[in-house]
Amino acid sequence: MTAHRRLIRRTALAVTAGAAAFALAACGSDNGGHDTGSMNSGSSLSATASAKAGAHNDQDVSFSTEMIQHHRQAVAMADLAASRASSPEVKDLATEIKGAQAPEIKTMSGWLASWGEEVPEDMSSAMPGMDHDMSSSMPGMMSSEDMAKLEKASGTGFDKMFLEMMVEHHEGAITMAKAEKADGKQSPAVKLADDVITAQTAEIEQMNKMLGKS
């Protein structure tokens, strides 16, 4: 009888211990699986963020910073055409230039901000000529004297001056864009550089025809 009771007690204890071990294993499996999944997900997101943060180089930063300033001057020149140009073709071209380059300024400013880089301040409205002088080292940029002459011109004189200056300005932008294509790393920036080359090459051809050069 005593032996029988001991057997029952051992069996009950074994069952209880087994159940407890199973419950602990199940809990450990659930928590472990959840934590591992979170860690893997977090690592993946972190790696993705790091990849995005490292997807640009110094050339991309220089291109965006300088092209913002370059585009701003082109937009300022285009704005003058609305009231000073006499040719409807010149006015239409100026509208197209502003329509293309103003959104690109916003795009490049967004890139710089996302990279933790400084977006260049637009000084053109603060002190006339300052923005142009500060950026004069960029190819194709007009000097403050050039801009002053354009601002004073009107009629057919403005048309000719605007076209000649904008051809030079576009040629400088193409030079900058080619440097980005050669040495840039961030795909959208390189793509924008390619778009600049395509669009502004076509506009140079159009402006030269308007000037009677081809």
Rank of each mutant, 00 (worst) to 15 (best):
V15I: 11
I8E: 15
D159S: 04
F158D: 06
P128Q: 08
P128Y: 06
A25Q: 01
E117I: 03
K185M: 15
K98S: 12
W115A: 04
A126T: 15
L45P: 01
Q73E: 13
P139C: 11
V167A: 07
W111V: 04
R10Q: 12
Q101Y: 10
K178A: 03
A55P: 12
E89I: 04
S83V: 10
T36D: 08
K91M: 02
G212C: 14
T107G: 00
R9C: 15
L93D: 00
I68D: 02
M141R: 05
E104S: 11
G116P: 04
A100H: 00
A189H: 06
V75H: 07
S64H: 05
A189C: 08
K91H: 09
A113S: 09
Q73M: 12
S143F: 10
F22A: 11
I97L: 05
M207D: 00
A55V: 09
E118V: 11
R10Y: 14
S114L: 06
S62H: 10
M142I: 10
A199F: 02
F22M: 13
V90A: 10
S41G: 14
M130K: 09
M165S: 05
A148H: 02
A148F: 03
I204V: 15
M207A: 07
A182L: 06
Q73L: 02
A81E: 08
A76I: 03
S187P: 13
E117S: 13
E171W: 09
K160P: 01
L192Y: 01
A25E: 14
H56Q: 10
S87E: 03
K185N: 13
M147T: 00
E151N: 04
A78D: 04
N57C: 14
I105L: 13
L13Q: 13
L24Y: 06
V196T: 01
K181A: 07
T156P: 13
D30W: 12
H70S: 04
N57I: 08
A94R: 00
V167N: 00
P188W: 06
G129M: 08
K178W: 07
W115I: 08
T156F: 02
G28M: 07
M147C: 03
M1N: 11
K213I: 14
M134R: 00
G37I: 09
S143G: 07
S46P: 00
H56N: 15
T11R: 15
D35N: 15
E118T: 13
S135K: 00
Q69Y: 04
D60A: 05
L80Y: 00
M39Q: 13
P128W: 07
H70F: 03
S214Y: 03
M39P: 02
S87I: 11
A100N: 07
T175W: 09
M141L: 11
A20R: 09
M77Q: 08
K106L: 13
A20W: 03
S83H: 02
L7S: 06
T175I: 13
A25T: 09
A100G: 10
A173M: 04
R72Q: 07
D79I: 12
M176V: 14
E145A: 15
H71N: 13
T36A: 11
A126G: 07
M67P: 01
K160Q: 12
M77S: 00
E171N: 09
S83M: 12
F22G: 12
K191I: 05
D146R: 01
V15A: 11
N31I: 15
A189L: 05
A100I: 01
E205Y: 08
E145G: 12
D159G: 01
